[in-house]
């Protein structure tokens, strides 16, 4: 975590991250992404483009998936923010995380936290159930390794699991 000299140009903001209350004095220029990573040490959320074009920074704000790189931290007063770290741990994986491991829904793993945050949100969204519809709903998460077929398979397997 970075330490800063006291700066008067900061903005107070309070929100929860993975259920835990957080109070910060942030640089108004700081994005939610950089705040999670540099201030809160939650580096599971990744920076891939910093312009909303790749989806690696996907987190949930009040239950909806968003690009944390295009959002100032200061705008999230009172919000509930969920990141990949809140989903599961290596010893206690969330079903979607387990499905990504089992079905090899990644290669390098860098876009993976964003993919998984999108995938978890998707199952609660009005996205259709066909592979093609899931692929469309996942197209905001670029995987340059091209593990797309397995990503769709992972999501579909969790959907099936949930249905039974």
């Amino acid at each position: 975590m970075a330490s800063h000299e006291f700066r008067t140009d900061r903005v107070e903001v309070a929100f929860t991250v993975n259920g835990k209350p957080v109070g910060l004095a942030v640089d108004p220029r700081a994005t939610l992404l950089d705040t999670l990573r540099d201030e809160l040490g939650l580096t599971g959320t990744k920076k891939g483009c910093d312009h909303g074009q790749c989806g690696a920074c996907t987190v949930h704000v009040n239950g909806r998936r968003v690009n944390s790189c295009l959002s100032f931290a200061a705008t999230h007063e009172g919000a509930a923010i969920d990141t990949i770290e809140g989903l599961g741990t290596p010893d206690n994986l969330h079903p979607m995380q387990r499905a990504f491991v089992e079905l090899d829904g990644y290669q390098c793993g860098y876009c993976t936290p964003g993919q998984i945050m999108s995938a978890v949100a998707l199952l609660a969204e009005p996205c259709g159930e066909s592979d093609a519809e899931v692929a469309e709903c996942m197209s905001g998460n670029v995987c340059r390794c091209g593990a797309y077929q397995n990503i769709v398979a992972a999501i579909q397997s969790v959907r099936k699991e949930n249905a039974t």
Binding site: G55, R65, V66, N67, L70, C127, S139, G140
Partner: peptide, 9 residues
């Protein structure tokens, strides 16, 4: 338009 994430924002 855009992606689900961007449309949510």
């Amino acid at each position: 338009g855009a992606s689900v994430q961007l449309r949510n924002m």
